[in-house]
Design a protein around this nucleic acid. Structure first.
Lengths: 204, 204
DNA sequence: CTTGTTTTTTACCATTTGGTAAATACACGA
DNA sequence: TCGTGTATTTACCAAATGGTAAAAAACAAG
């Protein structure tokens, strides 16, 4: 009788799989799915190409694994938004968390942007299954706050889009920002600006 | 004596070059530079691959030509902003023009996003030469308005970033929006929301 | 119609790509 | 230390890729 037990992965397996994922993040986030090559990933990971295909069935599987891992991280800041908190503060904290994420995980942000730009071919199911319900739930929460007069009334869906876009912009369009902003001036000033902007938009 | 005159291009040349550019826009905007193939572009343009290489020296030249053409279109809405107009209205009109552009030229928007995402390897010189001066000039204009008390005082550079990101989002992240928004609801509601948002941010 | 030029096709080519088979090296518990 | 499953390398492959040379076709001017 064949055991269908997943048989726990060895230390080597764990280490190499995570090396590959790390390398793939680097490469996919820079060149997109089609522009990335296994050889590049292999070089970046310090492994041979066939060795990589010993751990993953193929290029696609690496990419999918990456996106799956990313999804959790990506939803986290929104999940943390607390329906019982102080509305304006909850929203502003959310903005801050998103901005911090763009700052701390720019490659992840670009990987995500690349995938969506290309029409989310490998992620659409995930978006429907994970993002959509969470999005709807949190929209309802915020709409509740607005109905109670604790926030200014605006279109909640587009509000969230504007939070996403204005924060991720600092990761995804970094190359442009580097050209336009004198030195690394942005760090604090972006935080400052976004807090001001969303306060003005949302305070009752 | 060799004439160095550019000898005006024939009708066929004009037609085919524009066909190629159009096809390239379609393909590059969907897959990024490295992910796009000449065969794809050729198929899309209805020409053979060698025939395409009769009109353009190579893949790179097609891409560069595209980006150059795009740059003009891209700067236009900002150029139109009039230093002598009514400040708030000028800004809101600018937001509207950018939103319309994201709506009407999503492929161009994605091509641009792709290039910047990848670190703007083929566009950085252009950004420095064309975008930067215009950006600085218009920043000064807006800062003037703020100094006169005709607009609320906010960080102008980040203000512009937020205009760019929140409008282009509707082109670049369309795949995500399609998942989250019931039907084609966004058309009017995005306009409405953005006008409200930037009014709140900017009215004195 | 003829001739010279422009445009397109055909037939290639070298390199890169994702992927495989099989042999080899390695780890590690008995 | 040995044997056995795990990990890695070597040597490939077929398809796709960017690109070229040269012949053939289409076109334009006289």
């Amino acid at each position: 009788m064949k055991e269908s037990a997943p048989k726990k992965p060895s230390r080597i397996q764990l280490r190499n799989r995570s090396r590959i994922i790390e390398a793939a993040l680097e490469v996919f986030s820079q060149h997109g799915y089609r522009g990335a090559t296994l050889d590049q990933i292999a070089r970046e990971a310090g492994l041979s190409k066939p060795n990589i295909l010993y751990y993953f069935a193929g290029k696609e599987e690496i990419h999918v694994t990456l996106l799956n891992q990313l999804m959790e991280t990506w939803l986290d800041p929104l999940i943390e938004m607390d329906a019982n908190g102080e509305p304006l503060q909850e929203l502003l904290d959310y903005v801050q968390r998103k901005l911090d994420m763009a700052r701390d995980l720019p490659r992840e942000s670009r990987l995500f942007a690349n995938e969506i730009l290309q029409g989310a071919p490998r992620m659409k199911p995930h978006l429907h299954a994970s993002l959509k319900p969470l999005f709807d739930e949190k929209c309802a929460v915020i709409e509740g706050w607005m109905a109670e007069g604790r926030l200014a009334k605006v279109d909640v869906r587009h509000l969230i889009f504007s939070i996403w876009s204005s924060t991720q912009h600092y990761a995804d369009f970094e190359a442009q920002i580097d050209v336009l902003l004198p030195d690394g001036e942005d760090r604090g000033s972006a935080t400052q600006y976004l807090q001001t902007m969303f306060t003005k938009v949302l305070e009752p």
